[in-house]
Design a binder for these strands. Structure first.
Lengths: 150, 150
DNA sequence: ATTATTACCTAGAAAACTAGTGGGGATTGG
DNA sequence: CCAATCCCCACTAGTTTTCTAGGTAATAAT
């Protein structure tokens, strides 16, 4: 029961772009370095995000990527669904209702997978990039105070 | 974002055993046929379930498998965790808190994966095999009535 | 005792997927 | 022009998944 690193890396990259939102285009190289991800691999992931309309690219020197919407308007679910495909714990959830899944009558399991899927979706859709940035800032603040105590 | 078929097949097989609970040992062959799963492959899955103590085996002719606890006392989560390993959408959740995950401070994403994991766990742990059998019986009942209407 | 039926075990093989790498081309600011 | 940057296609090594092959061991029925 695992995501591939695609979703993980992609989310970290998008979070990085959100942290630098408003600073103009951010080159992929700097994102890859900060997030410790293979630059070339990340390039492929961000291409998918671009085709899905979540980021815009600016080519040429001083180019890079920017979020195409406000961080408040991009949820974690948006990103994960693009990179990992539809959230479907088992294959039969990707087929239209009642179709192709024989033994549908006995297929009580399907109902369970639907509930799993929905609960994952709910969690993923409940966080925006802006939430993540806020949380990171708060953590930085906390650790600053922590330093004082030592 | 997908389970492998191991969890899916294993759950279907356990559900099948639950439907025949009380009828003595059920041979794997009949389970595989009813559930349309490769017999030999299912054998390997059920071996894992046996080692985990979820089913008991009776060898020899007229042998087979039986649930080692009441259907009320086996949850879907029990089965999935055995077959799919710990529920951890990303690898870093498998490591002890704060350890090994560098950039932990920036690692706001971890908190999100924790929430995803917990919500999956909650759903999986909220269903027992007995619930599934009851649901299947109810569906059968419904479709009987449906027949009358036609 | 023999036989048929069952569980149990090990070793793989084919296919799919993951996480990259390699090597270039196209665009644009300075 | 040229360096920085995005963009694209192909390939690969490794892993995982799903399944097959080919047995051995135990036991109930005869």
């Amino acid at each position: 029961m695992k995501l591939s690193t695609r979703g993980e890396y992609g989310l970290r990259a998008m979070f990085d772009l959100a942290q630098h939102y408003g600073e103009g285009p951010i080159p992929i190289k700097s994102v890859a370095e900060r997030q410790d991800i293979s630059e070339h691999y990340l390039e492929q992931l961000i291409a998918v995000l671009r085709k899905a309309g979540l980021v815009k690219s600016i080519r040429g020197a001083q180019g890079g990527y920017v979020l195409s919407r406000e961080p408040e308007e991009i949820t974690v679910g948006d990103i994960i669904r693009v990179l990992e495909g539809p959230i479907a714990p088992v294959e039969c959830l990707n087929t239209a209702e009642g179709e192709s899944c024989e033994r549908a009558e006995t297929c009580v399991t399907r109902g369970i997978w639907e509930k799993v899927r929905d609960s994952i979706s709910d969690v993923l859709d409940s966080f925006t990039l802006a939430d993540m940035v806020a949380k990171a800032n708060q953590m930085r603040q906390d650790s600053k105070y922590y330093m004082y105590y030592i």
